[in-house]
Structures are given as C-alpha cells and as structure tokens.
C-alpha cells in the first residue's frame, strides 16, 4: 500500500513520500518530457529526488547552508546537461553522482580536523585470531523490520561523525547513498581496493558502535 501524498504548504506541490523505490518508469517518462523542454516535467523530477540529494549533501558536508547550495547546484547542472543524459543509468543515480561531486569539491576546499585512523574501532582478536568477545544478542536478526531506537539513531550519527574523513565519505556514498565502487572511485580519485578497504573498516567501526549500544560497558 502506498502512503498518502502530502501537500507541501510552501510550494503547493504534492510531495511524494520518500522512498527507496523511486519509480524509474515514471522518471524515464518525465525525463523524456523534460528533454523536450517541458519545465514542469523537470520540476517533477526535482520534487522526486530533492530529499535524497539534500540528504547526501547534508551528510557529507554537515552544513545546512552548504547542503542547500549543493542541492541547487546539482539540479541546475542536471538541467544544463539534460540533453547529454542518455538514460542508460537512472536519473536518480545520475543526480546522486553530480551531488557527490559537488559535495566532495566543497570538502576538499575545507580543512577539517581529521580523526586519526588509529581511532577506528573494530573487533578484537586473541593471538590465535579468534574473536575475543562476540555479540551476546544477535541484533542483526530481523533488524530491517524493527523500529530504530531513537537513542541508537543518535549513537549512529555520532559514530559516523567520528570516522576519519576518507572513511566517512566512502561509507556514506556507498552504503547510505548507493553509489557504486566505480562511481566513488571516479568522484574521489581513489582506487577501488582502497575504497573497499576503507568501507570495510568503517562498517566494522559502526558495527562496534551499535554493539556497544546493545551491550554497554
């Protein structure tokens, strides 16, 4: 069942519910009309993808002002290159890549206090390579069906913020925003093996943070 549409008070437009399953068939039809110069069709595409583009930009830059500007720049450059877009990829993944590039550009121009790699948490092993401690509760079971505890949500946000920059970026782009290794490699200039290694360590650190939430101390 589809959730009800809500009317956006500010724009008077009907906001579709945020969803992972953007209807790519709809997107394709809208895109064809937008490429023919129909501005309303382009605006409908913006409407459908603005939450995800803004979310990507906000997570990456952690600045609401930057996120708002990146969202504007992303959709403007999408519009300007609309004719070049051939539609092999989904419109959504195309604008995600544009947004990622804009966000990374801003981050590269900004000096951020780097967390040291040594601060990355992960599982501990005995000398023989055996797990030293292990989950007392298997919180991974049916995790998708359970509501996310609000306190756990905050713990995850804080743990993500503590990741060293290169690890945080890769984790967000791959696991949260769904870019491919190839797309991330293209955007960051890093090799795919390096990206995978950082992604793995970021996941281990975040897994550890969730683990600590379930069994503190």
């Amino acid at each position: 069942m589809k959730p009800a549409l809500t009317r956006d008070a500010a724009t008077g437009w009907v906001r579709p519910p945020m969803s992972d399953q953007v209807d790519t068939g709809d997107d394709r039809r809208l895109l064809a009309r937008a490429q023919d110069g129909e501005i309303a069709a382009f605006e409908a595409l913006v409407e459908a993808h603005q939450d995800k583009v803004y979310g990507l930009a906000l997570r990456m830059t952690r600045s609401e002002a930057d996120a708002a500007e990146i969202t504007q720049d992303t959709f403007l450059s999408a519009y300007q290159h609309l004719k070049d877009f051939r539609g092999e990829a989904a419109f959504g993944s195309w604008v995600h890549r544009i947004a990622a590039n804009h966000a990374l550009m801003r981050l590269r121009h900004r000096r951020v206090a780097q967390a040291a790699e040594s601060e990355l948490q992960g599982p501990e092993f005995t000398e023989r390579g055996t797990l030293a401690d292990y989950p007392l509760s298997d919180w991974g079971q049916n995790a998708e069906e359970k509501a996310l505890d609000a306190e756990l949500g905050v713990a995850i946000q804080q743990a993500t913020d503590r990741l060293p920059e290169g690890y945080r970026e890769v984790f967000l782009l791959k696991d949260v925003d769904g870019l491919s290794y190839e797309q991330i490699s293209e955007a960051t200039g890093d090799s795919i093996p390096a990206i995978k290694s950082r992604l793995h360590r970021a996941r281990l650190a975040l897994r550890e943070a969730i683990e600590q939430f379930y069994q503190p101390g």
């Binding site: 500010a10 708002a68 281990l204």
Partner: peptide, 26 residues
C-alpha cells in the same frame, strides 16, 4: 550484525529537505 549495520545506519542518517529549502530551490 555486520550485514545489518549498513541498513540501520542508512535509516539513522536519513534526511528530508526542509520545506523552506525546497521552496528556495524551486
């Protein structure tokens, strides 16, 4: 738990564009 981590993080980090930002974008 490793497998569940990404999905839980994705939900914890989800964002919606604020209405005034959306209006300015338009």
């Amino acid at each position: 738990t490793y497998r569940a981590t990404s999905g839980m993080c994705k939900r914890a980090l989800a964002q919606r564009i604020p209405q005034e930002v959306s209006a300015k974008l338009t």
